[in-house]
């Protein structure tokens, strides 16, 4: 073992005594302020400087990890491109018109891959938190006077959102190269909004699970049984009209569908508006605006569902 715990030198023998006294004075001032603030039981909440400070610090940690361990990003970009190319090739010879208005399967598939990739990333967001929990690092966060434990959620969401946007950009660029075309600039912006909304909701659920489940084995099990079924029970790979009616109903209840169909519509129509009908659910047409509202509602419900889990002290 290199180096014992060295006993500190007495402050007085330090040549920087005056300097450190000044620091201590600053610290004392800060402590006095915090002391009075912390005595009120009401935490500063989500719109305080404290919340921003802790959220940025936690986000920074995730980006430092990524920077020093970039394999997750590299794999995260390559994987959806493989999907796009291989899956696209698999169904290349499907007769035209079978997949709605799309000119070819590659064009049809693009929207599904964007959403599925973002969904997969967000679903895994709880894993690092679970590992932090198992290794004891999360205790560091839980014993700190956080303004709100939502900073843990928001930091993860910001990180996953950034990853998803990079992945989505790679998919959009690749499918454009493969001849699928591009949505108009405003449409691209809306694609980003849709991806971010879905990511926020799914990240929240995944983090909720990472607080609620006993360990990473259980979390992985939940991820495995959620991931692919939600993909197949959505319109990522085939349109609603292609499915048996029971599956149409299931797919119409799947939040992924409400992210995929608007993006697909934006790819095919430059004259879109919020009232454009983007899909025909068994109970009628769903507009672009309604899909967006459903996604926002999904995220809001997810965030409020996990609130008690965050508050609960983890034993």
């Amino acid at each position: 073992m290199s180096g014992a715990i060295i006993p500190p030198k007495p402050e007085t023998s330090s040549p920087q005594t005056s300097q450190s006294q000044i620091n201590n004075l600053l610290l004392q001032q800060w402590k006095a302020e915090m002391g009075t603030g912390a005595m009120t039981a009401q935490p500063p909440g989500l719109f305080s400087g404290e919340f921003v400070q802790e959220t940025l610090a936690l986000t920074r940690r995730l980006f430092i990890q990524l920077q020093r361990r970039p394999s997750t990003l590299i794999a995260g970009v390559i994987q959806p491109l493989m999907w796009l190319i291989l899956f696209g090739a698999l169904f290349q010879n499907v007769p035209q018109g079978l997949f709605g208005e799309s000119q070819n399967y590659g064009q049809f598939l693009g929207a599904g891959i964007i959403v599925f990739t973002a969904f997969g990333g967000a679903l895994n967001a709880g894993l690092p938190v679970m590992f932090d929990r198992e290794f004891g690092f999360l205790n560091r966060l839980l014993v700190a006077p956080l303004a709100s434990r939502f900073s843990i959620v928001i930091a993860s969401a910001i990180f996953i959102a950034a990853m998803s946007l990079v992945q989505a950009a790679a998919i959009v660029a690749t499918s454009a190269f493969l001849g699928a075309g591009l949505p108009d600039p405003l449409g691209l912006g809306l694609v980003a909004v849709i991806v971010l909304t879905l990511v926020l909701g799914v990240t929240a659920l995944s983090l909720g699970l990472s607080f609620a489940l006993p360990g990473h084995i259980e979390l992985l099990a939940v991820i495995f049984v959620t991931n692919l079924p939600l993909l197949f029970a959505s319109t990522a790979l085939v349109p609603l009209s292609f499915m048996p009616s029971w599956l149409q109903t299931v797919a119409s209840l799947n939040p992924l569908t409400y992210a995929i169909e608007p993006i697909r519509y934006l790819y095919l129509h430059s004259d879109w508006s919020l009232s454009s009908i983007v899909m025909q659910a068994p109970w009628g047409g769903v507009s672009l605006g309604a899909s967006l509202l459903i996604l926002i509602g999904f995220s809001a419900v997810s965030l409020s569902l996990i609130q008690p889990l965050l508050r609960r002290r983890i034993s």
Binding site: L26, L58, R61
Partner: peptide
């Protein structure tokens, strides 16, 4: 330590010195 300082909301200047 910087992360820790932010979790306890130390002001930037105080954190750096501390």
């Amino acid at each position: 330590l910087q992360l820790q300082a932010d979790l306890y909301h130390l002001p930037k200047a105080v954190a750096k010195d501390r």
